[in-house]
């Protein structure tokens, strides 16, 4: 996984609450069996008009927000489906950071699996960022070592993040590898729960399959 240490980039404000993963990446693009190539379909139904042309009113399409790598949104970002295609699409499009007052649980943890940093900030500071980001280009600097985000015009805020997740992001840790270091404890758990015999015999019961 790509490590995340510091990042400086432009902010695009998406002034909506409850942005669900069906909007982030609509279902018609979930048929791919790869992890990559979802960026062009990010927010597809919002970015494209019915005739397939680009919707000039949608924030991401505005020339002044081209190249932004920090997405600013309202409450409950990423709600709905567990599809990891949502952070894949955001990352593939070029986003490294999403800032919102609250996130949905599954989306939140999916971000960390993909070297992307979701920053939860209280509503009042998110409001302030929306005001500042209304004058593009608006750049933010994020320092994960210091857990701090700041701009060049005096805005500076610490943010909270789970210590383990922070360590993994900073190092770009492969979480499977890390868990496999505890394989003896996993095996011990299985033994203690009678799972050493093939599972089919011990708990799959009366099935003749």
């Amino acid at each position: 996984m790509q490590p995340f240490t510091t990042h400086t980039g432009c902010v695009v404000p998406l002034d909506r609450a409850n942005v669900d993963t069906d909007q982030i990446i609509p279902k018609q693009f979930l048929k791919r069996i790869e992890r990559t190539g979802f960026g062009e379909f990010l927010f597809f139904d919002w970015r494209c008009l019915a005739d397939g042309s680009s919707n000039p009113d949608f924030e991401l399409n505005k020339p002044e927000y081209k190249g932004a790598s920090i997405l600013l949104a309202r409450r409950n970002f990423g709600c709905g489906s567990s599809r990891e295609h949502a952070p894949w699409a955001l990352a593939d499009y070029g986003f490294r950071v999403v800032i919102a007052p609250t996130f949905a649980d599954i989306f939140f943890s999916n971000c960390f699996q993909n070297g992307m940093l979701p920053i939860q900030l209280d509503e009042q500071h998110v409001d302030e960022l929306f005001q500042r980001a209304a004058r593009p280009p608006y750049r933010l600097h994020i320092d994960l070592h210091a857990c701090r985000l700041s701009d060049d015009a005096g805005f500076a805020q610490p943010f909270a993040i789970d210590a383990f997740r922070r360590t993994c992001l900073l190092a770009g840790t492969d979480s499977i590898g890390l868990s496999l270091e505890h394989i003896d404890q996993i095996a011990a758990w299985e033994t203690a729960h009678g799972l050493t015999a093939p599972l089919l015999d011990s708990t799959l019961g009366n099935s003749q399959r």
């Binding site: 952070p87 499977i176 996993i186």
Partner: peptide, 14 residues
Amino acid sequence: GIGTSEVEHVLATQ
């Protein structure tokens, strides 16, 4: 529900 990276984690480690 879990994401696909977690699906892989569960497959590999249970």
